[in-house]
Amino acid sequence: MNILFIGDIVGKPGRNIALSLLPALKSKYSINYTIANGENSAGGYGITPDIARALLDMGVDLITTGNHIWEHKEIIPYMSGSNAVIRPMNISPSAPGKGYAVIKKTGVHALGVINLIGRVFMPPAQCPFHAAQDTISRITQEEHDLKHILIDFHAEATSEKQALGWFLDGKITTLIGTHTHVQTSDEIILPQGTAYITDAGMTGVVDGVLGMDKEQIISRFTTSVQRHADVAKGKEELQGVVITTEDSGRSLSIIRIKEHL
């Protein structure tokens, strides 16, 4: 089974290049499931219901998110009624929406997807390690035959991501880091068969700072005036990973992708 994970989609350049390249990528890698992190898809901050629907319409099966999930208030009622967008599992249990989902398609194994958020240099959250364990146990109780589990770990610190990767080795199919928007070249199949990458990268404009306008970000650092920057303009790139798994739920390979038009 082949899973395509698209790194944080940033603004409309990110959505436009995803719309352009998704059919070719799905065909090239014979993709069964496409998961995308969409927490920056609305102008670089958060996601709106319309944008979520547009991403799903273009062929994304499930959208994961992160710390910017609540930037647009209209997403709150949408999250309560949709299983196609999930938020980090280890924030408040009273938060709207779900922190995991199981997607199924005929002819292939079901895929469980869990969204977690880190605690190092991130907003307060519950322990992602315990949350991961609990959610895996819960998800496998709900779906007895579930062997494939993907975790999007939205975190800043590499150490926290690596530690969780090792902690979950053999318990899940793949752990993919997101949030830093910079694709790392440390993709690996851990000894017990879990595919791991510290960060899948970003889908958006690469001629900027993490997909945002470089001048405005530079100004933020030089003036200490903190305000939301605009999405950058320039060369667009789709970044992510493709994971190939075996029937047992172990990963066979993880390939980084970095495509542009």
Partner: peptide, 20 residues
């Protein structure tokens, strides 16, 4: 209207979705 707005802002993914 949403498609017009999206297209005007070169937001082709939203324009595409709303036109559908």
């Amino acid at each position: 209207k949403k498609a017009d707005d999206a297209e005007a802002g070169n937001d082709l993914s939203l324009a595409f979705y709303n036109l559908k």
